[in-house]
Design a protein around this nucleic acid. Structure first.
Lengths: 223, 223
DNA sequence: CGCGCCCGTCACCGACTTGTTACCGGCCCG
DNA sequence: CGGGCCGGTAACAAGTCGGTGACGGGCGCG
């Protein structure tokens, strides 16, 4: 799930991008109108978040241009007291708006609602660094590459590793999460699962080296 | 198609009910929280439109209570400036929201979109990508080709697959939708139905490969 | 009544998943 | 130097899952 965020304020742009990335979305950014359209055509995002006030050209033009080539949902960002602009934006085909300042939580809820309404609801998806794990489809994609199919256990293993990306996860904890208390203490189960998972990851050269062994402790997914 | 509208403002309630009735929907009304739940249980509507501000109990409680007993789509109505409430509503399981004031046209478009997404569109045709499913005639047409007759169960199966086209639908969910909770857990039923459906689809060469198996998860209709 | 269709059930096959055993090599430490 | 521990790898076996064919009961209809 790829989102395009357009804002000329670097701080706000970074904040929004951070919140969305953390929630597991792929984010591409643009700081002005021409760049926005360029990135849009190159990346074909599933949703656009667009500041009304842009230095070069206005957000209206971008919204209109996007509407000319796609039905993708567009959310406008506006400063308080610009309600008349808002009406214009909605008439131009924007799907929702958000008044600054807003909380990341509000942003996320709105983005989710928009995606749901547009019917491009994604499955449960978690992302960490270069890997995107699709819990619904049981697949993983590295650096946005072709998705690799995973088995049930592999998915469960990756789920916790992705959630704890960059940190070591103890073997005991992995065992508990994947097998429940049944497999407690059986390191062989884990060895095999890790081995099989690595074979799949290494089919994509970008995926080799992602899953590190922390000797005597557990495993760690590169962030 | 029956819709439940809940609002304590008699004017707004009448307006909304009028717009929906005019569009051909059956409408039942409620003015407060207890009445809403009573009417809900009695009428089992296909969609609920729910004001957040209710005199007795809040819209939240109603939303939660409804979610506790059904997956029916819920649309929340909110006044401008209640964005925090909105987030809470969406997290409680509401599917969409509308900020007052809104135009009847907007309301209708949203209601239609919600019903389409929920796959409870009645009567007419549902379409997704290259397939057009006729729920009345129990037939399907691929790429505008000759319609193929379907049985009752095949139609129900395709209904949810078309509604979720491009996304994996879990076996459990398919079973629940086609057979109700009776067939819960019986994969064999699903295997056979999918097999029979595929045979029909593959009579049209364009239809082969449309219904994809996601091993260990469920099935997915190509978008 | 007999026919055809719908659909639930059984049986079987091949592919995949998962648990288990065995073996290899490196490392630490006495 | 040698044994024990650890992690990686290979190979096998049992179990599971999905696809397919076949049978037959139920039902509506002429």
């Amino acid at each position: 799930m790829k989102l395009l965020v357009v804002d000329d304020d670097p701080d706000l742009l970074a904040l929004v991008a951070f919140a969305l990335t953390n929630a597991g979305y792929g984010v591409v950014k643009a700081a002005d109108a021409p760049e926005a359209l360029r990135v849009f055509d190159a990346e074909l995002p599933n949703l656009v978040i667009l500041d009304i006030n842009l230095p070069t050209g206005s957000g209206f033009d971008v919204c209109k241009a996007i509407r000319g080539r796609s039905e993708v949902p567009v959310m406008m960002l506006t400063a308080r007291g610009e309600e008349e602009d808002l009406v214009r934006a909605l008439e131009l085909g924007a799907d929702d708006y958000l008044t600054k300042p807003f909380s990341p939580r509000t942003l996320l809820a709105r983005v989710k609602a928009l995606l749901r309404r547009a019917g491009i609801e994604q499955g449960d998806m978690v992302q960490a660094g270069r890997v995107a794990l699709d819990l619904e489809a049981h697949s993983i994609s590295i650096d946005g590459g072709a998705p690799v199919r995973l088995t049930r256990l592999e998915t469960r293993l990756l789920q916790i590793l992705v959630a704890q990306a960059g940190h070591v996860v103890s073997a005991e904890r992995l065992l508990a999460h994947v097998w429940g208390h049944r497999g407690s203490g059986d390191r062989q189960l884990l060895k095999q699962l890790v081995h099989r998972l690595r074979q799949k990851l290494e089919r994509d050269p970008a995926g080799a080296d992602l899953l590190h062994t922390e000797s005597g402790v557990g495993y760690r997914l590169k962030a």
